[in-house]
Structures are given as C-alpha cells and as structure tokens.
Simulated assay, not measured.
Amino acid sequence: MRVVNGMTLFFSKEDALSNWHPSNFVVKGVEFNCVEQFMMYCKAKLFSDQVVADLVLKAQHPKDQKALGRRVANYDDRVWSQRREGIVRHGAYAKFMQSPDAQRVLLGSRGSMLVEASPYDKIWGAGLSQDDPRILLPPETWPGLNLLGRSLEVVRERISLELHEQLGVEAARKKEVFAAKVDGLRAFGVPPEEAHSLLIRFRGNALMAAGYAQTASFSVNISGDREAYNLSGAEAFCTNYQVTDDYQIVRRELSTNDHQDYAAEGKSVKGPRL
C-alpha cells in the first residue's frame, strides 16, 4: 500500500483493502474467506447457477474463485453491471465490520482517495500500477474505472458514520445513568460536588465518554490506567478527597504540607495511597 498525492494505492492480496486479502466474515449464515469469494458467489446466485455457487464456496484461493465466476451460466453483462457495485459494497461492509484489523486500515485511510492500482483490471482497478506516472494524473484520464476504490470509499463513510452514532448513543446512555445516580445521592442530602466524587468508581475514560470530563470541582485526566486529577481552581477537592487503588474516592483531610503539594494550579495529582 502506498499513499501519494492524497491517494491510498493498494493492489496485492497482502493489502487489507484488496478483495483478495484473506479475511473471514459471515453474511446470512454463509462464511467467506475474502470479498472475491463473496462477489463470485453472489454473481452465481444472481443468475441462479447453484452449481458454480457451491464450487465458489469450496474454492479457497481468490484466483480460482474468480475463474469460477467467469463460468456462471445465463450470465447477462447488463444485469451484472447494474448490481456488481452494490454486491461488492455489501461484502466489503461485512468484511470490515467483522475484522477489527482490516477496519483500522480502512478508517486509517480517511481523507484520501482509494485506488486499486491494478495494471490488469480496468473495471475494479485503475488499469495502472502504483509506479506508473499516469496514476498521478486526474482519474478521468485513467484507462480503468476504479470501481473497487470508489466502492470502498462508500463503505468507509458508512462505517465511520455508524461508529460515530454508536459512540454518541453509548455516551448519552452513560451520562443518563451517571446523572440518575447523582440525583439519587442528592435525594439523601449529599451535596452535588460530593455526589459526583463518590460516584467515580470507574476508569477516567469511561467518565469522559459519559460527558463528565469536568465536574463542578475538578476535571479528569487520563494517566495510564489510573485517574489523575487536574485542579481547576478548586483546592477543596484535593483537601477533602483521595483516590484509592480500587478507584474509589474517599474523604480525607490532608495536612498543610499535603495541601501545598497537591493544590498547585494545573498540576496533575493523585491522592496518597491508604
């Protein structure tokens, strides 16, 4: 894979973006070992050729799967041209949603144009290798359509939006749960600031995801696997609380020296161990 001029160029089966890249995924109960196998299986099913569809599932190498796809009976190029991109997008979506490693590669390419730099494929690829100087010219000058690159860009956008929505829903849910617990403590007469502090029993990143990076008395920073508390002009927090090893916050009166050590504005602090 190569990134140049705002393009992410890929080609061989070693590239996670390639249809030939080994990556097991399941669609409607059927397991596939790569998107090429999924595409050729769907091609056979589209034209009701169950014999070839079964052979494609048995074939382990994408080269053999592609060859079988050329043998599909009752093939109609007009029909296939209308359906092929939707089929590949569906398979690629399943692949990248079910393979965290491949998904990281796809999402890591955000902001770039995806190009299958295949000198042999003028339909799914650009019809040019990544070393061909013509690859730097406008896409409309390429001999190939680059349908795979364009399809992957659609899949990339869809997955990005879905993950963003999931994070938003999860953050809202955590925020509602946290707020409900705070309200419960306040009903028993616990002051709001103390209620927040008493409820910090989980890691700082979960608290931040819940939208509580800043409370009325302090803000939370992530320091490795522990919470670190960055004072925001409220020394009372450090004076009255400390963090235990199981991530609970308990009341404790610090000495005058402790107060001076921990109350420096902007300093990341941890309460002393119990």
Score class of each variant (00 low, 15 high):
7 M>L: 09
13 K>Y: 07
13 K>E: 14
14 E>D: 15
15 D>P: 08
20 W>L: 15
23 S>L: 08
29 G>F: 08
33 N>V: 13
36 E>C: 08
38 F>H: 14
39 M>F: 11
40 M>G: 09
43 K>H: 06
44 A>M: 07
47 F>Y: 09
48 S>C: 09
49 D>V: 07
61 H>L: 09
61 H>N: 13
62 P>L: 08
69 G>D: 05
72 V>T: 03
72 V>L: 05
74 N>R: 14
75 Y>N: 04
76 D>K: 12
81 S>K: 15
89 R>I: 05
95 K>A: 06
97 M>T: 11
101 D>C: 01
101 D>N: 07
104 R>D: 13
106 L>H: 03
110 R>A: 09
114 L>S: 07
116 E>P: 04
120 Y>W: 07
123 I>V: 15
126 A>F: 02
128 L>E: 02
130 Q>C: 00
130 Q>G: 05
133 P>I: 00
140 E>V: 02
162 E>G: 01
163 L>W: 01
164 H>V: 01
165 E>H: 09
169 V>I: 11
173 R>M: 08
175 K>Q: 13
176 E>G: 00
192 P>K: 03
192 P>M: 02
193 E>W: 06
199 L>M: 08
201 R>L: 09
202 F>H: 09
203 R>V: 00
207 L>P: 00
213 A>S: 13
216 A>Y: 09
225 D>F: 05
228 A>I: 10
232 S>G: 14
234 A>T: 10
239 T>E: 14
239 T>A: 12
242 Q>C: 09
242 Q>E: 11
247 Y>L: 14
248 Q>T: 14
249 I>Y: 11
252 R>P: 01
252 R>G: 07
253 E>D: 13
263 A>K: 06
265 E>I: 12
